[in-house]
Amino acid sequence: MNIDELKNIWNEENIENIPEISTEQRKTLYLPLEKMRKSMRGEFWSTVGVFVFAFVLMAFSPAPFKFNFYINLLVASMMFVTAFFFSKFFKLYKEMGNPELNTYDGLKDLLHQFELNKQYYLSFYLSFVPFMVCEMIIVLEFIPRPVPLTNLQIASISIGTLIVGIFGLFCLGKWWFQRFYGKNIDKIKELVDELKK
């Protein structure tokens, strides 16, 4: 037996061992994928709207130049970080829209992509902690007060806001992901488990 015959036998055996997805299972798969794509589109456009609103608000703000400049710089930096993470989400969005999901292995690969994007999603929310700290510093430094804050008050406000902010952003990220994507991912996992049997 030569090497070409061995390759042919190997390929035939691999093809036979990969379970195909039936038409009914594809319909079951299509609904959660389409719901997730709709959530991703909505999230993208609402984020664009938030950034446009922030820039317009700062353009008409009567605050001093230095305050406006720092806030605009901060919002622009947040926009670049958001663009990086949305580029990762967009790859998954495209993959879900043109699925080559005819096999069990294709579905397993998609689930792996979902897990990676879940980590990106949590990282996305946590990446806003430094921006939150900068915003807090700008507010503490530039908002005039009748009685200036003491050093202890500034430290307490800063540390308290940081602790609450990190915990809040992490919880918000987990909740948001589960609410808009987690339930649909669970349905796809059920389909993979069904194919495994």
Rank of each mutant, 00 (worst) to 15 (best):
E13A: 15
E16D: 14
E16H: 12
E20S: 14
T23A: 13
E24R: 10
Q25L: 12
R26K: 15
E34Y: 02
K35P: 00
R37T: 05
R37H: 01
R41Y: 03
G42N: 05
F44M: 07
V48S: 02
F53D: 00
S61F: 04
F65M: 11
K66A: 04
N68V: 03
F69M: 14
N72T: 04
N72W: 04
A76K: 07
S77Y: 08
S77V: 01
M78A: 13
M78Q: 14
A83K: 12
F85Q: 06
K88A: 05
F90D: 09
K91F: 11
Y93W: 14
Y93K: 06
N98A: 06
P99A: 04
N102E: 08
N102Q: 06
T103W: 03
G106A: 04
K108R: 14
L110Y: 01
Q113A: 14
L116W: 07
N117R: 07
K118G: 12
L122P: 07
F124I: 14
V129T: 14
P130C: 07
M132P: 01
I138L: 05
V139I: 10
I143L: 09
R145S: 09
V147C: 01
P148D: 09
P148L: 05
L149Q: 05
T150G: 14
Q153E: 15
Q153D: 13
A155F: 14
I157D: 04
S158D: 01
G160P: 00
L169R: 06
F170V: 08
C171S: 10
C171K: 12
L172G: 09
W176A: 09
R179T: 13
F180E: 08
Y181Q: 11
G182V: 05
I185W: 06
I185D: 08
K189Q: 15
L191H: 07
L191Q: 11
E194S: 12
L195N: 10
K197D: 13
